[in-house]
Design a protein around this nucleic acid. Structure first.
Lengths: 354, 354
DNA sequence: TTGTAGGCGTTATCAC
DNA sequence: GTGATAACGCCTACAA
């Protein structure tokens, strides 16, 4: 067996203070049963040796590691905000997070031993370290739904963000109010006089995408004289979203207003519009979703639906912690839908009478 | 003591397979000393019970948790790339990272019990979980240098990114070749005919900022007929960098070319220039540093120095792992300077003859 | 080939 | 007021 790094243990403090290890434990855990002088000697020795408790031990004893697994990368501005939210709540509750993701874009061949093998390994890294719960982002939750059972079957609390799993999966959910968002967009554009719409939808494997889509389409159906077609974009936005973006603009009955399911999709529309010499906000109005950091920088600045990633992250962390500590006891999945807000900028304008 | 969550242990497998726990351990560790049938029975039982090893135990036994502490937030595009790089190397080596940061921007009063208290707590969260090493970003390393001793004095390998600590701190270092970057910028602008320069410097508490600055200033000193003044910007870019940006543009001998120490600073210059009706790339040339995701979106697209955050992250992770596993034995700090690359876009142009 | 026993760092229970 | 001792899950001599 490997030699453990020299570590200061209670045993050494005991030796230094001339008491038993059990006494050291008592003193350090703050109990009042020891004599003042013993206590002082022990504390002094502990400080001098720079003792720090071993949470691994505490973990195997109590079954709680005060550690949460987070399967969500700093994918973009929104997800970084989500991570900040999770982090801050965990920190405030003396917890910590282990972050694991699918591999990014390393050099060399991407070895996979079958679909989802990476993800299964990552799950096991979390389980083997006995995390108290996990938080998942949509690509994980939707693409690897079977893997979620690895957690649930071990009674590990699971919270998904922006992707609601079926109730039998026993996962809590925190997301944005997609319903309200889609509706806001429809009403905003309609109020500007638009009647011919298009929706540049997110991949239908994602709950948020289908929710956003149906909310928008449903709202339009309630508004007389409107028409709308929908084109689905790629999964992830590294893929060439410009192709479907072009298809939308080249559509026989070109829409005067387009609702892009994400800000990056909106960006693809900007590029496609530029190629066709269409002026955004005049020839065609565009709305995004998320209010990414770049949304306000685009020319023209993008009208979009602001999601509060930070609040989402906080809510998710609060739920895992609640499950882990037992302060949340309901068996039914908890559902949180965070309000969103329409941020009107210059990419939307009144319809042109042509 | 709290009741541990029902967990599948080797004991239970032993009971199910009708052997001793030690035998289970032998089989699961892959040794060949057991009979084929015992082995099969044990493995079957383990699988049925969905056994997973407990790395906490392994950690207290071997002193290695296969976990690295990362004190670097997904602060912006560059730092997210760094995190991806760290993550991928760790994953490939069956390690995992715990990410801790200073608190973000939570609601309510930000309670601090003294300077750097948050950070000390975060450090202890890592130490108490017995991480095998840590990676630090500049604000941490520069602002809390004394805290670094909390790690070093416990023989924990420390790698800093973009901020080189003095050798006595025994921390390895990975950063960008600031020297080369600053020089590239000076030469690029000089070649375009510029002679009156300004540098919008990063806060001097940061190594990268002073390195960038002196590289630029030194290079200019070698180019005849040039002049340059420098104004230092705020720490972090949430602060109003627009004020010093304006000072630069309002300077009595207004520079025709400005080197901003960071892309966000360049952005502040864009805003200040717009207020003054200066056309960027014509009236004034601007260069940034980092090649953030927004650099190419700005109008005009920003000329900047590209740093390879992903490679930086990978290098840092490789060094901590090397230190932790003992494959790196040198006592002197390891130093890695990653090459950078000038990305010329439209924010720089030939000097105007006015 | 398999089982017993000691130990890793800590907490909690029980004597003393 | 303090010190043995068992227990947590696992590994590893060593014994059978």
């Amino acid at each position: 067996m490997l030699k453990p790094r020299e570590q200061v243990s209670q045993k050494q403090i005991a030796a230094a203070a001339g008491v038993s290890q059990a006494t050291v434990s008592l003193v350090l855990s703050g109990s009042n049963v020891t004599s003042a002088e013993t206590r002082a000697r022990v504390l002094r020795a502990a400080e001098k040796l720079r003792y720090r408790p071993n949470l691994l031990v505490h973990g195997i004893q109590t079954g709680k590691t005060r550690t949460i697994g987070v399967m969500a990368p700093p994918y973009d501005f929104y997800w970084s905000e989500v991570l900040y939210g999770i982090h801050d709540v965990l920190s405030a509750n003396d917890h910590v997070m282990i972050t694991v993701w699918p591999a990014h874009h390393g050099p060399g061949p991407r070895r996979r031993h079958g679909p989802g093998m990476d993800e299964l390994q990552q799950i096991h890294r979390l389980v083997d370290r006995r995390v108290d719960g996990v938080i998942l982002w949509p690509p994980f939750a939707s693409l690897f739904q079977q893997h979620v059972q690895e957690f649930v079957s071990r009674n590990l609390p699971v919270v998904t963000i922006d992707h609601e799993l079926p109730p039998e999966d026993r996962a809590d959910y925190v997301g944005n109010d997609e319903q309200a968002g889609g509706k806001m967009v429809a009403e905003h554009l309609h109020a500007l006089g638009h009647r011919r719409f298009a929706h540049f939808a997110g991949a239908s494997v994602f709950n948020w995408a289908t929710a956003r889509r149906s909310a928008f389409e449903d709202a339009l159906r309630g508004l007389p004289g409107t028409s709308c077609f929908t084109i689905e974009g790629p999964i992830g936005d590294s893929s060439p979203a410009i192709v479907p973006a072009g298809q939308i603009l080249d559509h026989p009955s070109r829409p005067t207003a387009i609702f892009a399911a994400t800000d990056p999709f909106a960006r693809a529309l900007y590029a496609a519009a530029a190629e066709r010499n269409l002026v955004i906000g005049k020839d065609v109005s565009i709305v995004g979703f998320s209010d990414h950091d770049f949304a306000a920088i685009l020319t023209p600045p993008l009208t979009t639906v602001r999601q509060n990633g930070y609040a989402i992250g906080r809510a998710a962390a609060e739920i895992v912690l609640g499950r882990s500590t037992g302060s949340i006891t309901e068996i039914e999945p908890q559902i949180v839908r965070m309000p969103v807000e329409l941020v009107v900028r210059q990419s939307t304008g009144p319809v042109r009478n042509d």
